[in-house]
Amino acid sequence: MSTELTPVTYYLTTPLTDADVAKLNIGDRVFLSGIIYTGRDAAHRRLVELLDRGEELPMAVAGQVIYYVGPSPASPGRVIGAAGPTTAYRMDAYAPRLLAKGLKAMVGKGKRADEVREAMVKHKAVYLTATGGAGALLSKCIKKVEIIAYEDLGPEAVRRMEVKDMPTTVVNDVRGRDLYAVGREIYEIKA
């Protein structure tokens, strides 16, 4: 058994600086507040196409956070329905391009590709996970929602969200460590 982690809790407000993310270690709890953006595969494809053509993105990504989410419909009186994270690997092909533009954090669930982890080290960024399936809990942290691009994509449109104390855990830090690998190593009991 390896050494157990001793997670530290941080409250961070966007936009994030290099110093904000550099202090984070795998396993740390981060409560995010401020403006974050949403995007899934289809939106990412379009964002990267804009970069390919040398055009401006619908939002400035430097210092920002992108949340991988496809919410359920909002019932009357609510800003959004259940809003837990979706699986992140589908964004792996696009993420390094946005990291190069200064994106500081991605929030999703599941493992990232080596290229994405390397890009996080290179550009000083982190990958956070929100709890998959905790859609009601996460919904309560979202205070305002506004579609800013690609409305035709429905649940996959790019939204600007105002969040308050959204609970996440650091999976990949700027030192290239991966909680999915380290966590299992600590708690595995070999036969």
Binding site: V69, G70, P71, S72, S75, R78, G81, A82, A83, G84, G132, G133, A134, G135, A136, S139
Partner: peptide, 9 residues
């Protein structure tokens, strides 16, 4: 509150 527990219903 009557919110689905997960957005994947």
């Amino acid at each position: 509150e009557g919110i689905p527990m997960c957005q994947d219903t």
